[in-house]
Structure formats: C-alpha cells, structure tokens
Design a protein around this nucleic acid. Structure first.
Length: 489
RNA sequence: GGCCCCUUGGUCAAGUGGUUAAGACACCGGCCUUUCAAGCCGGUAACAGGGGUUCGAGUCCCCUAGGGGUCACCA
C-alpha cells in the first residue's frame, strides 16, 4: 500500500506549535515510507477562513523545513485542494447517501436546537431526531415553500463502531452515543465530518495522523465510510500539547504560534527537534536530531499516549545547542532580521554583529536575546556595579590602567590574539613591578572596560569594542570612581 | 452530566511481570577558569490512591481520584 498522509488545517489563524508537531509526524511518516504528503485547506468556515492565514501557514511550514508533494501551492491529481472549491464533489457524495436513504432533511433552526439542548444538556447531547420521521410529502411541501433545510446523516441504531488506533489501540463507541449529525449545512456547504471523509477518500489517504481532539469524531467518520462503501484509512491520534498550567496551549501562557518563535530567533531545526521529542522518544538516548535522522528513527509505535507540557526552558536549551553549532554567518543574517523586527538597530553592521555572536553565542537561548547583550559592546556610559567600582580602587588599579591604556594605544590592530598577548605581558610586567598579578590586574581592566566584574573574555571584548570605545569606557569609569570620592591613584 | 482518552521526579520521558526504576531539561554542589558562561563530574527528586491476579506488579484486572477531549448547520 502506498502511504498517503495529509495535513488539513482550517485557515483561521497562524500555524500552532501543536499543529506543527502533527505535521511533523505526518511528514516523517510519509518520508520514511516513501509516501506522499498532501496539504489541504479546510476552509468551509466562511466566517473565519482567510487565504492570508493559508499563506502564513504555508510559510511557517516551509520555514520549518517541511514540504508537501500535493496540495495548496503545489498542485496534484486530486485537486482542487481547497474545500470550498470542491462543493460539487460533495454534492455527488451527498446524493449517493440520499439515494440509499441514509440522509434526511432537517428544518430545525439553530434557535430551536439551542433551546431544546439547553433543557437536555446533561442527559443526552446532540440532536433529538425531531425531523427524522418527517413524511416525504411534508418535506417536499416545505422545500417547495422555500424553507431551507440542512441534511443530516441517519446514524444506524444499536450497533457500535470499533477501530484500531495506531497510538491508542482498540477504541469502541456505541452508536447510541452518536446522534444524527449534519453533513450539509443550510448554506450548501458540507460540514467538517463529511468533507474530511470525502476528501480523504478521493485523495486516497492511507493514514490519518491528527490531534487527539479528533478521536471522538472518528466513529462518525467511520460510519460515513461504511455508508459510502469505502475502506476507512488507518488512524493515529496524537496527544495534545499543554501549556505550563496543564491546559491546552493558549496565548495567555506564552507563544502558541510557530511564527512567534521564528520572530524571537529560534532556529527551525531546534523547534523541529524539540517538538519531535514532545510525544515521541527514540529507542536510544539521543537528544539532538536532524530532520534526516528523524526520518530514519521516528516510529509511530513509540508515540506517547499522554499529553505533554510545553517546556520553554528545554526549548531554550535545545535552541542554544543549535546556536552553538550553527555557522555564525547564517546566525548573523537571521539575527539582523530578528533584531530589526524588535526595533533594534545594529549601527555597526552585520559583520560586527557576527563577531558579537561568535563571542556570546554560548549564552544565547534565542537570537532576540542579543538585544540584551549589545549595550555591553556599544554604550559609552555603562552602569558600574559596586564590586566593579571597588576593584577600581585597589592599590595598583591606577597603575594597571595607565599601562593598559598606553599599550592599547600602541597595538597595530585589535585582534583576540594581539590583545590576548598584550594582556598576558601586562600581567607579567605588573607582577614584576608590584608583586601581585592575576585578579589584581584583570579585574580592574574588566571593571574599567565594562563596569562589571563578569562578562566576556577580555581578549574577545576589546576587539569588539574597538580602541576608541575602549578608551572612552576606561575614561568614563575612572572618572566615575574619582567622582564617587575614592582615590585610585 | 453521558461518552472517549490519559496518569512514572517540577518538565520531557525509558520501562511491555523479576531493574539499585534509565536518560535529558531545570535546580543544587564540585572541578576547570584572571570573571561570567560553556564544558566536565556529582547530587536532590517519581511509579496518583485503594483493592485484586501472581511466587513476584510501574508493567495485567477492577474501583476511586485527578487531568484532558467531546457532546455545533466550528474545524
């Protein structure tokens, strides 16, 4: 059997992180079986659908590195791939069911239904079957009078629907639990449950891999497959991704859209890697996976049945892992965009930013955090910590800084090597002159250069500052120390 | 409320009747280091509860509790 899977979003918002994982699992499954991936737009909700979202979803998918063989933006033999463009097809299928007496017209208004439901809410949900027994004459008469009607599917009574879910095992539901549901809305648009079935049948879908919230829809859909005389596909329902509070991920608790993570400077491969591990685990203990490795290792049988909580801390760690091993040129390109998106201007340009990244990358959870690091390399007037201030008053600090300044001025070019050499020599010489070195040398230099007692390696910091800024900093910090009433001469 | 699904440390999770119950993130400590990170080493911490079945249960069965989903002319 050729594997054909699909991702079928409704274009009503950006790509959700949970959906991204669903697509990933579909994609991995297709790729490892030499199958096809299909992207279909379920845009039958005319109120909320918008092509703008369809485009954004496509863009996020591409950004993640997930492609598709057929569908929206790709074409294929089973098109069109937007449900609103397949209305005639649905009509044919509705007719097939009609001819077999499996449907009936329903004239109940939404208000009627709502009112009746209010009363019986906790006894039996769903439709009460009011129009099930309407005579053919009455139906014809009301239709003729121009009364509009929805079409409902006649659910068989007293039987049960059983199927085997690839991740959940055997599932059985009594049809008594399923009321006659609408398959064609009054406006002539099919409902989700009907359209998916027709689409999955006509597109030859072999495996339906989707979120767990659809598990309960599956029996209805299987009933439809049976009524149409079609073989249902295999189903795999994967658990939801929850937020920190254990609820379905909501914007209130953090970012839910893939795009939000892109804008914060998370790398697509980190996102993919992280969500792959949210609900699936490999046989061994590997944590870092490329897309190719995932194709090889992924196993639907090892997908977890329980919901997973999205942990940004681990994502941060994962992203950092990728930041540390990614080419800084690429990071710089991404960072320029990310920072621009945050309204942060990089006055000294991309190449300079690249060097900054080289120096601070091991502390970065995402590229947007670069914004917090930049002042350390650009500001003239820095914040001076009490500890830094104190180190400027040490016995030999004045001497150390004087010598550092004159040597800095003499250096031909500022590279990590030349500055490193210079510092080493300075340390040696000071030790010879005063008897103390190490911390008594490096700490005042650091304090005068940055106002802090911790930070980047000095030989990396200085070249990034440049001679001019470095000298200004030292001047500024010494002045501040003097002004604070302490004599550091 | 009915139905369906789920329940191993704070989080992700391994585990398919016999293990000292892995590993990762986070946290704590140590080493390294002119600082901070990174890195390396180590530590704290879990089978929701109760009944069975069994020589033996995180693993199988039942009940309870908790969480989630669903009960739309939304998808």
């Amino acid at each position: 059997m050729t594997v054909r899977v699909r991702y079928a979003p409704s274009p009503t918002g950006p790509l959700h992180i949970g959906s991204a994982r669903t697509v990933l699992y579909n994609w991995l499954f297709a790729r490892q079986h030499g199958g096809k991936m299909i992207l279909r737009s379920e845009d039958t909700d005319r109120e909320r659908s918008d092509v703008k979202w369809e485009q954004e979803i496509c863009q996020s998918l591409r950004w993640l590195g997930l492609d598709w063989d057929e569908g929206v933006d790709a074409g294929g033999d089973c098109g069109p791939y937007r449900q609103t463009q397949r209305l005639e097809l649905y009509r044919d299928y509705i007719q097939r069911l009609e001819q077999q007496g499996r449907t009936y017209y329903c004239f109940c208004t939404p208000e009627d239904l709502e009112a009746r439901r209010q009363q019986s809410r906790y006894e039996h949900g769903g439709y009460d079957g009011a129009c099930r027994q309407l005579s053919a004459q009455e139906v014809a008469r009301r239709l003729e009078q121009g009364e509009s009607a929805a079409v409902r599917f006649r659910v068989p009574r007293d039987t049960k629907v059983e199927f085997n879910d690839l991740v959940r095992g055997d599932i059985a539901v009594e049809t008594a639990e399923i009321s006659d549901f609408v398959i064609l809305k009054k406006d002539g648009i099919p409902t989700y449950n009907f359209a998916v079935v027709v689409d999955d049948v006509t597109m030859g879908i072999s495996h339906v891999i989707r979120a767990n919230e659809h598990l309960i829809n599956t029996p209805r859909q299987i009933l439809l497959y049976q009524a149409l005389g079609e073989q249902p596909p295999a189903f795999a329902h994967i658990s939801l991704i929850l937020d920190k509070s254990g609820r379905k991920m909501s914007k209130r608790m953090g970012d839910t859209a893939v795009d939000a993570y892109a804008q914060k400077g998370y790398l697509p491969e980190a996102i993919v890697n992280y969500i792959a591990l949210l609900g699936w685990s490999p046989e061994d203990e590997q944590e870092i996976f490329s897309l190719e490795e995932l194709v090889a290792e992924f196993d639907m049988g090892r997908v977890s049945r329980s919901p997973a909580i999205f942990d940004v801390k681990k994502l941060d760690w994962m992203n950092n892992q990728y930041i540390m091993q990614t080419d800084t040129g690429r990071l710089a390109d991404m960072a320029m965009e990310v920072l621009a998106g945050q309204g942060v201007e990089v006055a000294r340009g991309r190449e300079w930013l690249r060097q900054v990244i080289e120096v601070v990358r091991d502390e970065l959870a995402n590229l947007a955090q670069l914004a917090e690091f930049l002042p350390e390399f650009t500001e003239e007037e820095v914040e001076i910590s009490p500890q830094a201030m104190e180190s400027l008053t040490w016995e030999h600090s004045g001497l150390v800084l004087d010598q550092f300044i004159s040597r800095l001025k003499q250096l031909d070019s500022l590279t990590s090597d030349s500055v490193g050499e210079m510092l080493k020599q300075l340390n040696k010489d000071i030790k010879k002159q005063t008897g103390s070195g190490g911390k008594t040398v490096f700490m005042p230099v650091r304090a005068a250069l940055s106002g802090q007692t911790s930070g980047q390696e000095l030989y990396l910091l200085v070249p990034l500052l440049g001679r001019e800024l470095a000298l200004k900093r030292i001047d500024f910090c010494r002045r501040a120390a003097t002004d604070s009433g302490v004599n550091n001469e």
